[in-house]
């Protein structure tokens, strides 16, 4: 069984279900990627795994424990970290304050963790006193990831971390994400840049209308002609 597993999740925001029997999981030290068309329910699946949306059916297991009943901040305490798709930084606060807020639940000294984030994203050290809202898109995403890393999560969930950044910055971010995975962190990530993301994925999930359409290794999905035609722009 996976380290983090959202199992047969069914639910939505109101009367209508968005997710239908959707299952998503990831192992420690591995990268799992969710791809699919706009509105497929990728963000919804992430929110469901993080407890930001009620489930009608299914459960979320983390490190062998059923966390379905826990509130998001309780899941943070357990060792889960989440970078939402939008509004994922405190725009009026400085880079360093964003990191401090990421560590809010911790009572110990956080200076080492801040230094680690600066090692991972050196540009942030330079911009530490600048409000996050004044940074470029790529830098903002780095702040967002850095904020989530401040609790040293065992699983890091990223909803479109490369949205709106240039291809060069995207490669940069992917490299950093691989680096984080090497520290034995489980990474669950939604990506619009499906091809590049599947290239670094151990496991890939193709979601369509809240259903698991395909689930396989990243490599296998990239080789699957049906997936290529429908979801990877035919190349």
């Amino acid at each position: 069984m996976s380290f983090l597993l959202g199992q047969q999740m069914t639910g939505g925001y109101g009367a209508a279900d968005i997710l239908h029997d959707c299952t998503i999981g990831v192992e420690r030290g591995e990268i799992a990627v969710i791809v699919g068309p706009n509105g497929a329910g990728k963000s919804t699946a992430m929110k469901a795994v993080f407890g930001m949306m009620p489930l009608r059916h299914g459960q979320v297991l983390f490190d062998g424990e059923d966390v379905s009943g826990l509130r998001p901040e309780e899941r943070v305490k357990k060792g889960m970290g989440f970078v939402p798709q939008t509004h994922n930084v405190f725009t009026s606060m400085s880079v360093e304050e964003n990191l401090e807020m990421g560590a809010f639940i911790r009572d110990d000294n956080i200076q080492d963790s801040i230094a680690q984030v600066y090692d991972l994203f050196p540009i942030l050290k330079q911009k530490r006193r600048q409000p996050a809202g004044e940074l470029s898109g790529g830098q903002r995403q780095q702040v967002a990831v850095g904020r989530a890393l401040m609790t040293h999560p065992k699983v890091l969930m990223l909803d479109e971390p490369t949205a709106g950044v240039s291809p060069i910055v995207m490669d940069e971010l992917f490299d950093r994400i691989i680096e984080i995975a090497r520290l034995d962190v489980a990474i669950l990530m939604v990506e619009q840049n499906a091809k590049q993301a599947l290239e670094i994925a151990d496991t890939g999930y193709v979601l369509v209308q809240g259903h698991n359409k395909f689930t396989d290794s990243g490599e296998a999905l990239l080789a699957n002609p049906e997936v290529r035609r429908a979801f990877l722009g035919g190349v």
């Binding site: 939402p84 994922n88 405190f90 009026s92």
Partner: peptide, 10 residues
């Protein structure tokens, strides 16, 4: 600044 993210940060 950001109520949701504040909640997520505990």
């Amino acid at each position: 600044d950001n109520e949701n993210l504040a909640l997520l940060s505990g």
